[in-house]
């Protein structure tokens, strides 16, 4: 029987649709042409100009500070939330679940605006702190969901086994529970990290003077066409970093299943 070629064609077409624009961006970051309309020879010029652009590096530093701190905090809070959600099953928990789940589906622009209103009303100075708080609010949800999924097929008899063998709760936590959940917590953390790094909409609302993050810096650079190739170079670097993060996150979640 001759196999249909249709699935092959659709797959190739969809992959092209996904990746050709990204490929073009990567190519253009090495293109000597400023406008990217045609190939005018290979250059690393844009990368050199990128490395000499001070504000970009300040923005990158801000982005990393926020990504790392909000990831760490949301890993702790998200894991605790997942535990509470899994452990207790009351009507209050269903509300808790909805509250944790909502940030995943609420439009960013709504989140950003409401957070801005909240910060202004509370008299917060807009800056890195407000961006950090905003990022934690949505990162918690992602970590909680990933850890909760791990908890759902967690065999809790190992906890009893640990107690049975003489361990108190502290030993059980450090020797059994956390090591077994570590891949889930790490996967949730990496997801949070990548989301925090490239968040634009929410950050745009809650950032203040001197707290520009990378995505916002890129947006403001795009107003001048001469900056376009530098943005291409920067995007290429971001792409590589994000790809590595996602790849290692998948490795961590897959590890247990094989």
């Amino acid at each position: 029987m001759k196999r249909s070629r249709l699935p092959l064609f659709t797959t190739v077409f969809i992959l092209l649709f996904f990746y050709v624009p990204i490929l073009l961006l990567v190519l253009n970051s090495f293109n000597a042409s400023r406008f990217g309309g045609s190939w005018e020879g290979f250059t690393l010029n844009w990368y050199v100009r990128l490395f000499n652009d001070g504000p970009i590096w300040t923005a990158l530093r801000n982005t990393l500070i926020i990504a790392v701190s909000s990831t760490l905090v949301s890993m702790i809070l998200g894991t605790l939330a997942a535990f509470a959600l899994h452990r207790y099953n009351t009507r209050l928990q269903r509300i808790h679940y909805t509250l944790i789940y909502t940030p995943l589906v609420v439009p960013d622009i709504l989140m950003g605006m409401s957070l801005l209103l909240f910060f202004v009303a509370m008299g917060f100075q807009l800056g890195l702190t407000t961006i950090f708080l905003a990022h934690v609010t949505f990162c918690i949800s992602y970590v909680a969901m990933v850890v909760l999924a791990r908890l759902q097929d967690f065999d809790f008899s190992v906890i009893e086994a640990s107690q049975d063998l003489g361990a108190g709760w502290w030993d059980t936590l450090w020797r059994v529970l956390l090591p077994m959940l570590a891949p889930g917590i790490a996967a949730g953390g990496l997801l949070a990290f990548t989301l925090s790094i490239d968040d634009f909409v929410i950050t745009f609302f809650v950032s203040g003077p001197g707290s520009t993050t990378l995505p916002i810096r890129i947006y403001s650079m795009m107003k001048h066409s001469r900056n376009m190739p530098i943005i291409n170079a920067l995007s290429t670097i971001l792409l590589v970093v994000t790809f590595l993060a996602v790849w290692s996150s998948q490795r961590l979640t897959r590890e247990k299943r094989t």
Binding site: D155, V158, E160, G166
Partner: peptide, 19 residues
């Protein structure tokens, strides 16, 4: 509490520590 009793259990699912 279970950790202070001189008894040990074989669980139905064995409950070995997978890690």
């Amino acid at each position: 509490p279970p950790n202070e009793r001189k008894v040990n259990t074989i669980f139905q699912s064995y409950a070995l520590f997978p890690h």
